[in-house]
Amino acid sequence: MKAWGLRLVACGLPLFLVVAVTAQTQRSQPRFGIGRPATPDEIKAIDIDVMPDGRGLPPGRGTVQEGASLYAQKCQSCHGVNGQGASAERLVDRESGKNWDFAINPKLVKTVGNYWPYATTLFDYTSRAMPFMQPGTLAPNETYALVAYILALNKIVAEDAVMDPATLPKVVMPSRDKFVIDNRKGGKVIK
């Protein structure tokens, strides 16, 4: 009996290794059965990202005017009056950099207006990480309003614009088409 048991162990070990190695090389099965299913509620609780096509935007709405008052309360002390920058970065300036000479003009400051390619990014980031000392505390309506205000200051949306899950993804940012895929692949040519 003892010898048989040992033989089983001796056979079992390589078998286990074969399974593991196979798992390393195949994209599908087998599974280890480790981890537990995620419930829809727990996914919803932290699935906060917003994509460029608007997927992930929460219900809500906000106006430029509402945003102006919220900005004065929650943002201006770091980002300056009218988004001109202070201890935190400048948010507003569409004119400088409109020729997109960022690589050759060291004086240019990248802002939402002259550099950011997607308006949805502004919602996503503001919602997840701002205000800096109270991150993640803005209600969706507040975030929509602040985004509307920053976009209006940059003359990207009108003064009477309303931002909501339908309008925000339709905003076309001035620098939308300026970004190119990375063509560096090593080799002899310096790119």
Binding site: F102, A103, I104, F179, V180, R184
Partner: peptide, 11 residues
């Protein structure tokens, strides 16, 4: 940003 007025993304 690159001198041709574009910028590499996911570099």
């Amino acid at each position: 940003p690159l001198p041709d007025g574009t910028a590499r993304i996911f570099s």
